Computed example of a mutant assay.
Amino acid sequence: MPPSALSVTDLALSSGTGQLVHPLTFSIGAGECVALLGASGSGKSLTASALAGSLPEGITASGTISYPAGPVPGKAAFISQDPATALNPLVPVGKQLAIPLLAKGSNRAEATAEAARLLARAGIEDPDQVLPRYTGQLSGGQLQRVCIALALACGSSVLVADEPTTALDAVSQLNVLATLRAWGTGGRSLVFITHDLTAAAALCTRAIVMEAGRIVEQAPMAELFESPQHPYTRRLVQAAARAAQPLAAARTAAAA
């Protein structure tokens, strides 16, 4: 078994007297890509925020979250559904990427060169053209990849991505999924939060399924598709199968 990159024990989230997420216990191995699946309101996005240490105001947490492995223990990078919220619209992308690099001892020229390399690693074409741009000049898919480059710049060992493909067109979705797939190189780990089982299956090897603030099933992705145990998981699998039918038909027609 790989060493644990993220360990969660009895994590519970509440607002006032209402419990939104009931005690959760799970772990993510070093270099592992795991999907946290669930419909809107299942508690998956709140859980993602807790993992990244960015809970909304008014939400209280109990339990333990630890990052025992990786180059920067105790730290996770976070990509929200709206990546623009993680970036400063008044500062060029290159200067934002340079901040953590300068903090680690690089000079300005070294930081600029490394920022371009990180953008390229994150799937950005022509990174030298992107460095001087502002967030308002980039597409949603480009912003997601800039956030991934920023996570690389910070040296984070775990990336928590909350619905990173939801608002993107099909081509951008595929590009971002490919970039996230490459994240796991070098022992880095990914927690992919989504309601889209098809996207999760394309990226992750294991799934944690949430419903109404509780984990209802955990299984390898292939096993989840072949033999889902919980009624909610079975509905997810059936919905994914129905969604795949038109795509399969279109591919067949195109090949004819």
Rank of each mutant, 00 (worst) to 15 (best):
S7M: 09
S7G: 03
L13W: 01
S14F: 03
S14K: 14
S15H: 14
T17L: 07
T17P: 04
G18V: 13
L20Y: 00
L20E: 00
L24K: 03
T25K: 04
T25L: 05
F26L: 12
I28N: 12
A30K: 08
G31P: 12
V34A: 03
A39S: 12
S40I: 12
G43H: 01
K44A: 12
S45L: 10
L46W: 02
L46I: 06
A48H: 11
S49P: 01
S54L: 14
G58Y: 15
A61I: 01
A61Q: 15
G63L: 11
I65K: 00
S66R: 15
P68H: 06
P68Q: 04
G70E: 10
G74E: 05
K75T: 13
A77Y: 11
F78G: 01
I79T: 02
I79E: 03
I79P: 03
S80M: 07
D82L: 05
D82V: 06
A84I: 14
T85E: 06
A86E: 01
A86Y: 04
L87A: 05
N88D: 15
P89Y: 08
V91K: 06
P92N: 00
P92F: 00
V93M: 14
V93P: 14
G94Y: 08
I99L: 13
L101S: 08
A103H: 08
K104I: 10
S106N: 13
A109F: 02
E110V: 02
T112W: 12
T112Y: 04
A113G: 09
E114G: 05
A115N: 11
A116K: 12
R117S: 15
L118N: 07
A122M: 08
G123N: 11
G123C: 09
V130M: 10
R133E: 10
R133K: 14
Q142G: 08
L143A: 01
Q144S: 12
Q144I: 08
R145K: 13
R145C: 08
V146S: 06
I148Y: 02
L152T: 07
L152C: 08
A153H: 10
G155E: 06
V160L: 12
A161C: 09
A161H: 10
E163S: 05
A167R: 07
D169I: 06
S172W: 02
L174E: 14
N175T: 13
N175F: 06
V176E: 04
V176G: 06
A178Y: 01
A178Q: 10
L180C: 02
L180K: 01
R181V: 01
A182P: 01
W183T: 04
G186M: 07
G186L: 10
S189Y: 11
L190A: 10
L190H: 06
F192A: 09
I193Q: 00
T198P: 03
A200Y: 00
C204P: 05
T205I: 00
R206W: 04
R206C: 03
A207Y: 05
A207I: 05
I208P: 03
A212I: 00
R214D: 11
A219R: 11
P220F: 06
F225A: 07
F225Y: 15
H230D: 13
P231H: 13
P231N: 14
T233I: 09
R235C: 11
A241K: 14
R242K: 15
A243Y: 06
A243W: 03
A243L: 11
A243C: 04
L247N: 07
A253P: 02
A255C: 05
A256D: 08
